[in-house]
């Protein structure tokens, strides 16, 4: 019975974290997200214009 190599898993996770940061800097500004926080789940009620 073979065992998994935790080093490979850590390497994958660390590499993906670095590439995720690099990708957010690479994409156009309209596709970029802030580092923390998220999109609003529900928009607020619409305010009728006078």
């Amino acid at each position: 019975m073979q065992t998994t190599n935790p080093r490979i898993l850590w390497l994958l996770l660390a590499g993906c974290a670095i590439l995720a940061i690099a990708n957010n800097l690479r994409v156009p500004s309209e596709c970029r997200v802030s580092w923390f926080g998220g999109q609003p789940v529900f928009p607020g009620p619409e305010v009728s214009q006078p």
Binding site: L13, C16, R32, G37, G38
Partner: peptide, 30 residues
């Protein structure tokens, strides 16, 4: 397009607000 994906993640209403963008950036790379 991480921003559009973050919006899709948000609609699940499952993750804490602060983690949605981090999740949307990290998961596609994985």
């Amino acid at each position: 397009n991480p921003q559009a994906f973050a919006l899709l993640v948000a609609q699940y209403q499952m993750l804490p607000q602060w983690s949605i963008n981090l999740f949307a950036l990290f998961t596609p790379q994985l």
